[in-house]
Design a protein around this nucleic acid. Sequence first.
DNA 1: TAACTAAATGCAACAATATTGCATCTACAG
DNA 2: CTGTAGATGCAATATTGTTGCATTTAGTTA
Lengths: 136, 136
Amino acid sequence: MDILRDKNLRVTPFRKEVMEIFLENEHAISIQDIEEALVEFDRITLYRTIKSFTNKGVIHEIVMPGDIRKLALCDRVCDHEEGLHEHNHIHFQCRMCDEVYCVESDELPQVKIPGFIVEEQEIQAKGVCKKCKKPS
Amino acid sequence: MDILRDKNLRVTPFRKEVMEIFLENEHAISIQDIEEALVEFDRITLYRTIKSFTNKGVIHEIVMPGDIRKLALCDRVCDHEEGLHEHNHIHFQCRMCDEVYCVESDELPQVKIPGFIVEEQEIQAKGVCKKCKKPS
DNA sequence: TAACTAAATGCAACAATATTGCATCTACAG
DNA sequence: CTGTAGATGCAATATTGTTGCATTTAGTTA
């Protein structure tokens, strides 16, 4: 739970539970996933916990086409500050298992749009994930 | 209103009004934008209208980081079927005016992820739009 | 280890957003 | 002009997220 302490977030039993859930999953999870994983909890506290985690850069929000909203730990693939996503960080959704993963791309070329100044870009990809490609 | 008729959607006064709003704006609009533009309306009908339009490919939904949900006409930049977005279609949000645009990129290279099969990709960009870059 | 304090929690109440069922109406095909 | 599938509008309800406030607690300091 040093992740929390490092970000100046108090380590409470509830926050530990929530962190466990994130650490157990290697893919991004939804708020519903968290709610289902918790045995007993207060919704308001959960929402505030998520907000704290997001503000401090412990987790980040992922929005995919089709109203899919997920959360994922930040330090897995990036080390962002205040919503900035650098590196070759891509959000990938598998069409077989539907899971969303934060992955790194080999190369991530900068997009150009005539007349527009592009400062940040985020790529969302769909296809088949590593697991579904070659089932264990 | 041939757009609607072509997609086998009945042309009703309400749908005409909604279409007008889409046609008046060259950027994507939110449900709230539509609600504000309508003088008097039934929310349920509006939601159902949006759902019909989306299902038939008249409009498409755009989800941007930060819980930003917008709607835009499809035929402007793409000719998709059932949520498939092909072409060099990019969703761009201006950090000055906050508007979201559907734009085309010069080139849009295919992203590669080791171990994953990438079939589709969508790019969300942020920066400064054409209008804010050089104010009229 | 005891006490303090800012941070976190949990309850109640609320606000905003979206959906379902059903009766009525209407666009448009024949 | 008429029939009917599709669209509308109302009521009721579900889902999702927020605010205020009193209470508790993590982590610091004495």
